[in-house]
Amino acid sequence: MTAEVNDVAIRAQGLSKSFGAVQAVRAAEFTVSRGEIFGLVGPDGAGKTTIMRMLAGVLRPDAGGILVDGVDVGAEAERAKLRLSYMPQRFGLYEDLTVAENIFFYGELFSVPRKERLARSTELLDAAGMSPFRRRLAGQLSGGMKQKLGLVCALIHTPQVLLLDEPTTGVDPVSRRDFWAILYNLRESGVTILLSTAYMDEAERCSRLALLHGGQIRYCDTPARLKQAMPGALFAIASPTPRALRTAVAGQPGVLGVLLMGDRVHVRVDDPARRLPELRDLLAGLGVPDGAILATEPGIEDVFVALLGQEAPT
């Protein structure tokens, strides 16, 4: 990294954590620049939550160092906490408090001046479409609204770094759209966002991604470059019986991977010029029309599977 220290929002070096015999995170290293939306992607148990917790200063790493907004989290966790906001995977607000009371509570914990808190909560609640629900108990909100409230509380003190652990899991599409609109606005104002996600379309929206597997960061780059790094080329085959087709294609020579995507099958091959005719022959034999096979750009899920050799977490 050649970036100036000032431009670095998060830097993790040699981060490791074990729980008993299980190595949850192994020597993780990454750097997030100011104003980035950085995504952690990986299957369950890959170590996403453990990394998040160590960055948030609530879990002590066995080894390695973390710098958040210039503050060493290992040495000065409490000072770092003033600059970051962490939203755990499980809803962490008080369900027996109202929306407004939760916001007040977190505002006070960060000593946000009263005027600023009022102005900011109005602005954030409006952006989240939640203004009519100020007096509702948090426990009576829908899943999407709970997550948005979590975000409002996390943002009440205007943090420099935002850590979101699977913030949109179980959230309806409309709320997810609202949620991302807020995240983009935040990035505009220079806030650094690190999030983990199980949704591939969300991974695609990140400026950079870290692909995690077995507690290790296997790849870390922009979505575009990760796609380029994917070996081989991709064809999409439409079929009324995609499962049968997947089985038929899987064993063919030159086929590196087959992935079921709804009513289509994504086939990754080593040499497209040579393999396309072979695939056409095979499809003809199966009675699949000629126009069903098309060259396609890889999605992040294809990249994920290709690079990690494993099914995506969705």
Partner: peptide
């Protein structure tokens, strides 16, 4: 038990 502790300890509260 209610999962509120994780968020609480991520704040500067002592």
């Amino acid at each position: 038990e209610r999962g509120t502790m994780e968020q609480l300890i991520s704040t500067p509260v002592t």
